[in-house]
Design a protein around this nucleic acid. Structure first.
Lengths: 107, 107
DNA sequence: TGATTCTATGGTACTAAGTACTAGATTGCA
DNA sequence: TGCAATCTAGTACTTAGTACCATAGAATCA
């Protein structure tokens, strides 16, 4: 089940590596690289407080453990889940990584 | 080359999944889970401005493309590399992920 | 030659994320 | 009974991150 889940990102990884190889061979330029890379990116969707909590509970971890994975304080996880604060750009990216690939993707 | 690099994290991923399975089977409690998870985490080291730039150039991407991967603005990448701002907790975590697993790990 | 685009720097100003501290209520375990 | 973990809650502070702006070098193409 995790195999089909990882399929898309695997394709993207292969695309990026192919593009990187072509770049290093001098066959494509940076401008092309940019096009490749941006089309490879998975969009990060802003998560609601309850989505964040559901995500954490899906992984069977406490707020403290979850905080350790994301390199933030446990207090901030609580604030996210109660809607007192909203994840910043990098934080939202981390959350979407966990959502799509599981906690082990950010271990 | 990338195989030996991924070895440690693969072991950790396996450990986490084993612990998760044991938890779902009711054989270990959350307290034990916590011990498992925290020992699985790779510590994030604060990166210097020039380390951040070296990391980006290692991946052959512009500041703009790099920013898209990390879900921040290109201006912030510039500030990181010039030492005007320092990456926050979640941002540092993302950078260490790129450092250890490459850009495709955050695609 | 000029025109255009990408790249990166530099600055200013503002919003709010993230941190650190505290305390309280709850649960479960010894 | 006490001890520890979990989560909530609040306060106050620092600064990361954003949104603008203008500038300049390098590369590409007419």
């Amino acid at each position: 089940m995790s195999r089909s889940k990882a399929y898309k990102s695997d394709v993207k990884a292969a695309l990026h590596e192919t593009a990187t190889d072509l770049y290093e061979a001098g066959l494509i330029d940076k401008k092309t690289m940019r096009g490749f890379d941006e089309s490879c990116l998975t969009p990060v969707a802003p998560l609601t407080p309850r989505e964040i909590r559901a995500l954490r509970e899906r992984e069977h971890v406490s707020q403290t453990v979850f905080a350790n994975y994301l390199n933030v304080t446990p207090n901030l996880i609580s604030k996210w889940e109660r809607g007192e604060k909203k994840p910043s750009g990098p934080a939202a990216k981390l959350l979407s990584l966990v959502e799509k690939h599981g906690l082990t993707a950010v271990a």
